[in-house]
Design a protein around this nucleic acid. Structure first.
Length: 304
DNA sequence: AGCGGTCAAGTTGAT
DNA sequence: ATCAACTTGACCGCT
């Protein structure tokens, strides 16, 4: 019923995604840069396949793909066209193999572009670069059959209504490959579910409900009510986020994530739902597996 | 082999 | 006006 998703990397399992830096690449000729990037991209396609195999073996049915799966793809100095990579044909076929594997084994894959990807910024350069990045991620999403590219609404810029209006305008202009995968997530500083739901409804963009962010930044609606409102924005299997705070009480930033999920943080109203829950916990696959055990124990106790 | 400094991006809020 | 924090492991390069 509930599908648990792993986020990007592994704690124990020896599956690593490679990356590089613009500074390092700067020391080489363009030809050498492309050869090196090609090697990394191929290694990442292979790592993704092994990640999906791990998930399948362990009953994990979701995997979030790191934004740097094709490293520095849209970087202003060292960015590149995929077709310029020496092994692009083979790399693409490897990613398509991941997509086939995911489809065959009921694995859901998603993307979560990071904090720099903004559609609400008043700075047009920021927005244009963000859209370029979304287009790159949607291309990989197409190969691997990922149905979600999830972003936050961005900064407040002193006027959240105007910022959300810019967001709406940019969503309207997005290429269809991005738009049909785009989702919005409530954050822990600026935009609550209540802020985002009108945009989601009007634009037909699903809301990824992060219950931990909602507890950090409440909006007067409870978890149960917000769960229902979020469910209603989805035209496919809903995707939610779950994490436990590092410091439930006392000092430290309550927004940081704990190694594992405290089952007490799991909303009971989610138990009967047919949804994907991405587990944001620093112990990664170990945390997903532990949550899976805790959930099965919970249902045993409830019925017995 | 091991360890430490470093890494594309934007926004906020403290100073 | 400036700058750290956010979040974070993996990489390179030096010892």
């Amino acid at each position: 019923m509930i599908r648990l998703g792993l986020c990007c990397i592994f704690r124990k399992e020896p599956i690593k995604f490679r990356r590089t830096t613009a500074k390092y690449l700067g020391k080489f000729s363009r030809r050498q840069q492309l050869a090196y990037l090609s090697e990394i991209c191929m290694a990442n396609a292979d790592a993704l396949y092994r990640a999906l195999q791990f998930c399948r073996r362990h009953g994990i049915h979701g995997f979030r793909i790191n934004s740097q799966i094709l490293p520095l793809k849209t970087h202003p100095e060292v960015g590149y066209r995929f077709e310029d990579l020496p092994s692009h044909g083979k790399i693409r076929r490897m990613f398509e193999g991941c997509g086939t594997y995911a489809a065959e084994h009921d694995l859901r894959t998603t993307f979560h572009p990071d904090q720099f990807i903004l559609l609400s910024s008043p700075d047009d350069t920021v927005t244009r670069r963000s859209i370029a990045d979304l287009i790159y991620q949607s291309e990989v999403a197409q190969w691997v059959n990922a149905d979600v590219i999830n972003i936050h609404a961005g900064g407040g810029y002193g006027d959240k209504t105007r910022a959300l209006n810019r967001l709406r305008r940019e969503i309207e202009r997005l290429p269809e490959t991005v738009r049909r995968r785009l989702t919005l997530e409530n954050d822990d500083r600026i935009y609550t579910p209540k802020d985002l739901l009108p945009v989601c409804r009007d634009m037909e963009i699903p809301l990824v409900y992060d219950v931990h962010h909602h507890r950090c930044l409440p909006d007067g609606n409870g978890v149960e009510k917000t769960t229902q409102l979020a469910l209603d924005t989805w035209n496919r299997e809903p995707l939610f986020h779950l994490s436990s705070p590092l410091n439930a009480k006392g000092n430290g930033n309550p927004r940081n994530h704990h190694d594992f999920i405290d089952i007490a943080d799991f909303p009971r109203s989610w138990l009967p739902l047919h949804i994907t829950i991405e587990v944001e916990a620093k112990a990664k696959e170990l945390a997903v597996l532990k949550l899976m055990e805790d959930l099965s124990r919970l249902s045993t106790e409830d019925s017995g």
